[in-house]
């Protein structure tokens, strides 16, 4: 493989996982640079997973100061005001993450995801955004797609007992072992904007209800100028009205976005820690797959709802 061998220290620390994905994959991981924006519970879980896995570097963005809400599902922030006073969420998470694995460089950048230029973004291999508005997601995703090199783009969000992951690996080639042979596989991903613009009418059958419910809420938050996750029970009538309108224009039977589900998501926008662990775990695995080139990456949405317990992959791209 390209480059140096793993050090004795790395071989010892990563022994159990090298037995899962091999030494080549471990070397690729140790050279990967990852940017994450929005440090809520699911992202904290994700960061823990990839720092333990031994990536090269992790850069955190979250300018918020610590609030009760920021503490709720995030185990990276000590609940002691004398520690967190005056520090941003990203700075506090950084201190904890550094401690998990001294071999990974963890740092903080101030700023908003939408303000990052292409010069900056191209220094990364993977970009993960969370708690971002629809416009921010689209804009970061579009910038990634314009870069001279392929940068993997992910969004992740959890509300109530549900979670969503979106993946854009652009044109992704990877080797896959089939019995004795290794075959070259290729996947072509749409951008976030293209994926959500696919008319609902041409979707594959039985797409997760969560996909639709989250699109409605996303549109509601955008129209009302809300921050992501900033909804409460008083918004329910407005969201349900919007749901009806969208369903009519998309020719989708309204019953396929149950009001009870919409109600859960609107009235309980805070995260549920077990779901953060699950979503952060799946996202960690996906990023490890994309960086190491080992294993089939998911395309292009993933959903989990603790109520039915299913973790489902949905492929929503114009070709299908």
């Amino acid at each position: 493989m390209d480059g140096e061998e793993l050090t004795e220290q790395e071989t010892q620390l990563y022994d159990r996982q090298i037995r899962v994905w091999g030494a080549d994959a471990q070397r690729r991981l140790s050279k990967a640079h990852i940017l994450v924006c929005g440090m809520k519970g699911a992202v904290a879980e994700f960061c823990k997973n990839i720092v333990l896995a031994g990536i090269g570097s992790l850069t955190l963005v979250d300018n918020r100061l610590v609030t009760e809400e920021a503490l709720s599902a995030n185990f990276l922030i000590p609940p002691d005001e004398s520690v967190f006073g005056g520090k941003s969420v990203a700075e506090l998470c950084c201190d904890s993450l550094k401690d998990f694995n001294p071999m990974v460089r963890v740092s903080v950048i101030k700023g908003e995801p939408s303000s990052f230029d292409e010069e900056f973004l191209k220094t990364f291999d993977v970009i993960v955004v969370s708690c971002c508005s629809l416009a921010e997601k689209k804009s970061v995703n579009e910038k990634c797609r314009k870069l001279p090199k392929r940068v993997s783009f992910y969004t992740v969000d959890c509300r109530d007992s549900c979670g969503e992951i979106f993946v854009d690996l652009q044109d992704y080639k990877y080797a896959k072992k089939k019995l004795e042979d290794t075959v070259e596989c290729q996947l072509s991903y749409p951008s976030f904007e293209d994926a959500i613009s696919v008319p609902w009418k041409v979707h594959p059958r039985k797409v997760s209800k969560l996909f639709y419910a989250l699109r409605v809420i996303e549109r509601f938050e955008e129209a009302e100028g809300r921050s992501p996750g900033e909804t409460s029970v008083s918004d329910l009538p407005g969201v349900l009205k919007l749901k009806k309108e969208i369903c009519e224009s998309q020719l989708l039977n309204e019953a396929h976005i149950p009001n009870a589900l919409v109600e859960r998501l609107v009235t309980n926008p805070t995260e549920f820690p077990p779901v953060c662990a699950i979503i952060g775990g799946i996202l960690g695995q996906e990023v490890i797959k994309a960086v190491s080139g080992k294993g089939d990456p998911l395309k292009n949405f993933f959903y989990f709802d603790a109520v039915d317990g299913k973790g489902t992959i949905e492929d929503i791209s114009s070709q299908s």
Partner: peptide, 10 residues
């Protein structure tokens, strides 16, 4: 036995 953090978290 092979072991990774992500599966344990899930």
């Amino acid at each position: 036995v092979h072991a990774v953090a992500t599966t344990n978290a899930i």
